[in-house]
Design a binder for these strands. Structure first.
Lengths: 231, 231
DNA sequence: ACATACAAACTAGTATACAAGTATTGACAA
DNA sequence: TTGTCAATACTTGTATACTAGTTTGTATGT
């Protein structure tokens, strides 16, 4: 059978399931709180429950699902504490990366940053929002590469993906994009100038844009958040 | 059967296995590169392979083992890149936590820090090295609590545990302890004084003590490190 | 109508059996 | 002695069957 997505022979069945569910959850096609069962997924993929089980364990470690033994498994809801933590971690890592970037930026690095900003501007005027989102990742990756701390991007990517899932619930994303581009320009300028403190300040300002967006989302989507009483 | 460690009814079999292996690996009783098989562990615990499999997935997500499909599973070796990343992450988080701590430290916080240092001094003179190690965690946890960023300690704990496993291979740990205590005193003083920059500087100096230790360990224990050529 | 209890239908956890790939070892030939 | 190849003994991956706990719905008694 193998109804869906049997791509290369390289990827195992478990990987297929993980990637598929990861995408469904990250894009909010599977909403927080949605219950999913091993048998259900197993049947969809035409496999037994064991590979699904392994996939669930992986998704659990990625903080995308919550397994309640003998009861049910559900898509993880958002939590204010997790969001706070994620924001703190990302701010700390981003600040350190920016410092390194400002201290190590050469002409090639400057060109790389300018290219990212230009491409993002282009994507915006062409209303290519998918590319716009991807280029956002590229910009922050470029910062990490310039700072000679490529591993920093791994952390940033993880945390950014979390908040991106959350931000799908937000409105008027399009209106905020010019501001984001301006932020990137400021960051790039400071990094190219070798001004670490200015780069960090610009980076922190950039991150703070999300705060009110997230606060609004939380108010309007309480059903997708865990009760902060117990957890 | 259930030969070993069937403690409370609360913990599941999987948790038992995870905790057990985690301890064995963290303390280096299971050396990096040691091969362990699902069947082997299953027999030891008197259970089938499935719970062991689940436990392996968990340990894999904790970066403690490496599962090579159809080949073998082994205790994860150290890698220079992973160590670099861990150091970077911890430095970034610790710096941010220290800044927050310096800005939020009240008299209660100051007392807490002093108590940590005093207890650690006591543990040292009493040659109670287990307590000494635990109190090291307590000190950094206190910093995070004072800074109102308790989640920061979760990251620090994770990264510290990684490097602690590595540092078991090091020599003359006892001789370094007075220096660590002095470092903690400096950090505590800066935090209590509300001097964020001084606190960060002291914290970074504290972290840098590990660098030469780790370099020496790497030279003397190449067998426990992955070949940096491929990975 | 309502409450309680019991039974049926979920859920994930575990055990066993088999499949598929890899490494090792030994025999055999050059 | 050395190289090649095949059989064998591993490894993890997958499928099926069964266990145990939870929820839910329904029937029954008040």
């Amino acid at each position: 059978m193998k109804s869906t997505s049997m791509g290369g022979d390289r990827r195992s069945v478990v990987d297929d399931i993980v990637i598929h569910l990861q995408r469904e959850i990250s894009t909010l096609r599977l909403l927080p709180g949605t219950r999913i069962s091993e048998s259900e997924v197993a049947e969809i993929f035409g496999v037994s429950r064991q590979p699904v089980r392994d996939a669930f364990r992986k998704l659990e470690s990625l903080d995308l699902i919550l397994v309640r033994p003998k009861k049910a498994t559900e898509v993880k809801k958002f939590s204010a504490r997790a969001i706070e933590k994620s924001r703190f971690v990302r701010a700390a890592i981003e600040a350190a990366a920016l410092r390194n970037a400002a201290e190590n930026c050469d002409s090639a690095g400057g060109f790389q940053l300018d290219a990212c900003v230009a491409l993002q501007q282009k994507a915006f005027v062409e209303r290519d929002f998918v590319s716009f989102a991807n280029l956002d990742y590229d910009f922050h990756m470029a910062i990490c590469e310039i700072g000679r701390v490529p591993y920093a991007f791994e952390v940033i990517k993880t945390e950014k993906e979390r908040v991106d899932r959350l931000c799908i619930l937000g409105l008027s994303k399009e209106e905020r994009m010019p501001q984001l581009i301006e932020d990137h320009k400021d960051i790039a300028a400071a990094v190219k100038a070798g001004d670490a403190e200015a780069a960090v300040a610009a980076g922190m300002k950039h991150l703070s844009r999300l705060d009110e967006t997230i606060a609004a989302i939380r108010k309007n989507n309480a059903a997708y958040f865990v009760d902060e009483a117990n957890s």
